[in-house]
């Protein structure tokens, strides 16, 4: 179980959010740019400081009296743009995570899961955008996170690469609970049915909408409605 209650001001945005998510599968948070999606995710990771409570799988990451630093939280984070360490090879990037992992993760299995074995000796600069995000996913998993946060991990990729990587994200979601932030209803509909809507720093009251079985036009209409567009 993941319990989040966070509030505070960041720049112009006044964020006040509370929700629970199950400790498995993918939970998506949708919203327009500027709605506070990234701020919320960063606060959950401890990268930015908001007041409130974050509890993941029974472990308190932050509450009224305590604030665990980012590296003490069992968090994994996949950033919007590929953020592999450029001074290390693919192998080096994975080693970085394995060396500091809080719990043992089967390295060979993860490499197999994301099909990155042929990439291991390569330089980060020699990878395509999709390959980079796959390595980022593997690296995040290898650190043994209790919760994986993904901030629009497909936004820097072209259409082909997006289609290619979506199944990998589903596979990852089956292993570790994921909070997935996106503004793209189609992308989200292919990942999960559990969707929360964020608008101007508030989660909307409406219950999670099932997108299964709807046509693309219907999904887009729903999303426009939900986003107040």
């Amino acid at each position: 179980m993941i319990r989040i209650a966070l509030n505070g001001r960041v720049g112009d945005l006044d964020l006040d959010v509370a929700f629970n998510a199950p400790g498995e599968g993918i939970t998506a948070i949708m919203g327009r740019s500027g709605s506070g999606k990234t701020t919320l995710l960063r606060a959950m990771a401890g990268l930015d400081r908001l007041t409130g409570e974050v509890t993941v799988s029974g472990r308190v990451w932050q509450d009224a009296t305590r604030f665990e630093l980012v590296h003490k939280r069992g968090v994994g984070y996949v950033f919007q743009e590929p953020s592999l360490f450029t001074h290390l090879s693919v192998q080096g990037n994975l080693d970085f995570a394995v060396k500091r992992a809080t719990k043992a993760v089967d390295r060979a299995e993860i490499i197999d899961l994301l099909k990155i074995a042929p990439l291991l000796p390569r330089a980060v600069s020699k990878l395509s955008g999709g390959e980079r995000q796959r390595v980022s996913l593997a690296r995040a998993l290898l650190s043994g996170p209790e919760l994986l946060l993904m901030d629009e991990p497909l936004s820097s990729l072209d259409q082909t690469a997006r289609q290619e990587i979506l199944p990998f994200i589903r596979v990852v979601g089956a292993r570790v609970p994921v909070i997935y932030v996106s503004h793209d209803p189609l992308e989200v509909s292919r990942l999960t049915e559990r969707v929360l809507y964020l608008s101007e720093g508030r989660l909307s009251e409406r219950p999670a909408v099932s997108l299964e079985g709807l046509s693309q036009a219907e999904i887009e209409a729903l999303a426009r409605q939900a986003l107040g567009g």
Binding site: L47, H71, V75, G76, F79, F85, T102, A140, S143
Partner: peptide, 12 residues
């Protein structure tokens, strides 16, 4: 960003 990434990978 690189320092943030390192922190999310458990580096102090």
């Amino acid at each position: 960003r690189p320092m943030e990434v390192a922190a999310t990978l458990r580096a102090s």
